[in-house]
Simulated assay, not measured.
Amino acid sequence: MARPRSLPDAEVHDTICRMLSGNGDRAVSFGTVSRATGLAAATLAGRYGTRDGMVQAALGHFWDRLEAAAEDSAAETKAPAFLKALGEAADPHLVALSLTLPELRPRAEAWRQTVEAALALRLGRAEPAAMMFALWQGQRLWQEAGGRSFRLKDAARRLTPSG
């Protein structure tokens, strides 16, 4: 079967993000992305310039989706429902990888501040919001490793003044 001549950036970025999330930074090269998308490695090199440029473009796409998910979740009035609405968009592996890249770290930190501010509105104070954010991200990370989970609404209840 012939290789596709083109594929929308969003599809390429989604593929790269899945590779990064599942197998880490070392799993992504022009060759591995070429095999996963069907695009020629030379096409990818022409499109993104460098491997790092390709990864940054994919992570930029991830952050665009994550910021949109936070906006879409704003209607949720309870902290656990707000975090649940963010759902799969908030992949902790991609967030953590972004924190290691100087170009993306400011975006990750701004998103954390936005989410914590939204949680503070729902929980009544900033300190419990920061703890809730950390609990949520930790829960997402460790669930994949088989870690025992807790219910976010129970954590929210314990972190609020009336809880």
Rank of each mutant, 00 (worst) to 15 (best):
E103T: 15
S29G: 10
A130E: 15
E67Q: 10
P102L: 03
D25Y: 07
R51L: 05
A89S: 13
F82H: 15
T77Q: 14
R65I: 13
E116Q: 10
P92F: 05
W142Y: 10
T114D: 14
L141G: 14
L44N: 01
Q139Y: 09
G46L: 03
T43Y: 13
W111K: 13
A40E: 10
C17L: 06
F62K: 00
L99N: 12
G38I: 02
R125H: 15
F133E: 12
A81S: 11
L119A: 09
L121F: 04
L135W: 06
M132K: 03
V115I: 14
K78V: 10
R26I: 09
E103M: 06
L86Y: 06
G124T: 03
R51I: 08
G124A: 00
A118S: 10
A41T: 12
L141R: 11
E71D: 11
A108C: 02
R18E: 14
R65F: 14
W142K: 09
A145P: 10
L94H: 04
A134P: 14
S73E: 11
L121H: 09
P80V: 15
L99E: 15
E103Q: 12
A118Q: 09
A68H: 07
F30C: 07
L101P: 09
N23S: 15
G147R: 06
R18V: 07
L119Q: 08
R107A: 06
A118P: 08
G38S: 07
V115R: 00
A90W: 08
R148W: 02
T50V: 07
S21M: 02
A129W: 07
V55T: 02
G46N: 13
H13P: 02
L44A: 03
D25K: 06
A42S: 14
G31K: 06
